[in-house]
Design a protein around this nucleic acid. Structure first.
Length: 265
DNA sequence: GCTAAATGTTGAT
DNA sequence: TCAACCTTTAGCT
């Protein structure tokens, strides 16, 4: 399940399997029959991640646009693909590998202008080399909205989701209720740099781990699910740093988590 | 074994 | 504001 780190990881992994290859597409579920037929048999030229969006560029100036949403998932394997089970929106195959897509919010054929239109409404992506923190700062520094809402707004920053929102604000010691225009530029720049650091680690590990070693219960071995977050989904439990009770409240239509002591209003 | 919630967004009401 | 998308998992029993 995807925030930006998952998308960038998929782009990398799928590139290794598909780039420069002729790809066959089908839609066993039937909901993408026309698109699969249009794209099938073309060479996959490039895969580009932006925020939570994936763009698969095929020869002939046509793209596959995928947004996983909350449930969407890719599974991959080598050799002959398994018999299709369940609601399988798209299957892509090369001679060697297969890739199955289930449950995406978006799976559609795009033209280059349609891709450009999506990019035009997204803020900078901290995982991209061209991610420009000043573009986000322009929005944040003028906004009366709380920073916990702004971080979730894909027009402000592309790729952050509910886990990173909670965890990044905790790491910054910043209250989610601080309004954008009250955030200092120095605080923002540090937050942006920390976002890049933490999300890059997420791409590498294939999961979100935001805790420092000294804040974990168990210090060696694989980081447990329990140990991988400071506040996300820890409502009512003790803050790892100070012992105060972690709080929760809906903000931007999602459950927000924070420590009232480490992130004072 | 069952239910609810979940790392997200869109489009209808 | 809410249903839809559709799967996985946590937390119950």
């Amino acid at each position: 399940m995807p925030e930006g780190h998952t998308i960038h990881r998929l782009a990398r992994d799928h590139g290794a399997l598909l780039q420069g290859r002729e790809v066959s597409l089908s839609s066993p579920q039937g909901r993408f029959d026309a698109g699969a037929e249009l794209l099938s048999g073309r060479v996959l030229e490039a895969i580009e991640p932006y925020g939570k969006h994936l763009f698969y560029a095929f020869e002939g100036e046509v793209l596959l646009h995928v947004h996983l949403g909350l449930y969407g998932k890719w599974t991959t394997g080598f050799g002959p693909p398994p018999l299709p089970r369940g609601a399988l929106r798209v299957r892509m195959t090369t001679g060697d590998a297969w890739l199955d897509l289930r449950g995406p919010t978006a799976c559609e054929v795009y033209s280059p202008p349609e891709k450009a239109a999506v990019l035009a409404r997204l803020g900078p992506d901290p995982l991209r080399r061209d991610g420009d923190q000043l573009r986000a700062w322009t929005r944040i520094s003028r906004s009366k909205a709380p920073i916990g809402q702004l971080l979730m707004d894909q027009a402000v920053l592309a790729g952050i989701g509910n886990v990173y929102r909670a965890e990044l604000l905790f790491r910054a010691g910043l209250s989610p209720f601080t309004v954008g225009r009250d955030v200092s530029q120095g605080t923002w720049e540090a937050l942006w740099e920390d976002t890049r650091t933490v999300m890059r680690a997420g791409v590498k590990a294939g999961r979100i781990v935001t805790t420092a070693r000294e804040d974990r219960t168990r210090v060696s071995g694989r980081v447990s699910r329990e140990d991988s977050h400071y506040v996300y989904r820890r409502a009512g439990r003790e803050c790892r740093r100070c012992g105060a009770e972690v709080r929760t409240q809906v903000m931007a239509a999602r459950n927000l988590f924070w420590c009232p002591h480490c992130q004072p209003a």
